[in-house]
Amino acid sequence: MESPLLQYLFRLGDDSLILGHRLSEWCSRAPMLEEDLALANMALDHIGRAKMLLEYAASFEAMGHSADDLAFGRDERHYYNLLITEVPNGDFAVTMVRMFIFSAFDVLRLEELSTSHDEMLAGIAQKGVKESRYHRRHAADWIWRLGKGTDESRRRVQRALHTIWPFTDEMFDMDDTERVLIEEGIGCDLHTLREIWKKDVSEVISNAGLTLPEDGYMHRGGRNGVHTEALGHIISEMNYGYELMLS
């Protein structure tokens, strides 16, 4: 069994690894050149953060694995990202709604982790929070534009909210792993963040003239390695080049 900190680093690292992967899929596919640059920058932030977190994990993981081994050498049941990060990109509206909703959460989580008693983790969070504040702002602006744009964009962004909303509950789940780390002053207490997040999200959505979906069935399981069908496709693609260089 992995130590709580190692498990925690996998969770944080996999959130960024998988979201970074999804963002990188936009490469050469954005609505404008300028937005292609923006999506690549957000992808680079997350893949870079995954690299730091997994390098840290590798530094005390008992098996002597490298960050790449950890990033690309696991099977489906041993990735621990939130399911929201693996939802397929869909159209630009789905991508921006996911980016906003996740980044609004990530900013709060990273602000907390910036004062973690684990100095390494705190350092990574201090760097990450600047990135995620920018991501949140960029995506929130787009939600406003899509909400205030044309009938089609309003329809698409409202539909995207319904696509993403069932993945939001899981972001605030905590188990014994996280409780142990909260007691040690290392991990982040997500319960206290939920109301702040909800307020932020509600404001942006309603300013854009959109409606917050009602809570219905909520997907969960990523933290235990139980994923949507999308993850298997991501890792069979993502791990190909790594396996090639081993052969």
Partner: peptide, 13 residues
């Protein structure tokens, strides 16, 4: 695929 996004941005402005 991006036309509706550009159109929305222009309209929103």
């Amino acid at each position: 695929d991006g036309a509706w996004v550009r159109e929305a941005a222009q309209k929103a402005a």
